[in-house]
Design a protein around this nucleic acid. Structure first.
Lengths: 115, 115
DNA sequence: CTTGACCTTGACGTTGATGTCAGACTTTAC
DNA sequence: GTAAAGTCTGACATCAACGTCAAGGTCAAG
């Protein structure tokens, strides 16, 4: 599919799609005319990318965790990468925990102020 | 306390402290010479602000939830504000959930690739 | 009274994830 | 064939949350 179709199906601007590609998060073939040509899995990939970015991960981190989310066994699972991923996971866990705390605080506030 | 002391005690740059004040997140009195004068509670306030920003909330949202985190009953708990806070809470909950998902995905990846 | 540390405001620089626009080519519809 | 719509690259614009620097006021120490 071309960039316009992918853009519609993921509700993501062509500009962002090109940016993701430039950052190495997304790949595409090229038609004879130079137009980008995406496979069907691109839709899922873009949705994952957007989720990760939306929760606050910078593209550099997204690039690292992206291969992990497809759930395949990687060939080059060197210990360094595993350690990096583990640290990332801890970072994410910490963020989630603090968000949970904020949610709880907001909940308490709501309860205390709903009569 | 002056801005230098608050800066040290919160490990936050004076620039950021002034920025928070400009955004309406932080208040200060002024000494006769124009120097900012912070109360003791400013330390806790700044730490809360930094936590919220660090987990990805923009200052505009921080400004809204900040009064809720001090846990006092607000006088002006109009229904609109409560609805706004409830929506915020839902947003935060959603973010936390997706972060949890990412953490789980990373955990699965680590488990699958640790021998 | 001067030096140095601290404070002030104001302005410009930076980074990440885009928006937007220009200029050119391709494809599609008529 | 011509116009409209889609795509390309490249460049400049934006926004938040700062960093950094300039020019000047304040104050304790020598």
């Amino acid at each position: 599919m071309r960039i316009g179709e992918l853009s519609e199906r993921t509700r993501t601007s062509p500009r962002s799609l090109r940016y993701y590609e430039q950052q190495g998060l997304l790949t595409s073939d090229r038609e004879h005319n130079g137009y980008r040509d995406y496979g069907a899995n691109a839709v899922a990939t873009v949705q994952t990318i957007r989720s990760l970015i939306e929760i606050g991960l910078p593209t550099a981190l997204v690039k690292e965790v992206l291969p992990c989310t497809v759930g395949e066994k990687s060939e080059a699972a060197c210990p360094e990468l595993l350690a990096r991923i583990a640290a990332l996971r801890e970072d994410v866990r910490s963020r989630a925990e603090r968000l949970k705390d904020v949610e709880t605080a907001l909940g308490s506030y709501l309860e205390a102020n709903s009569r």
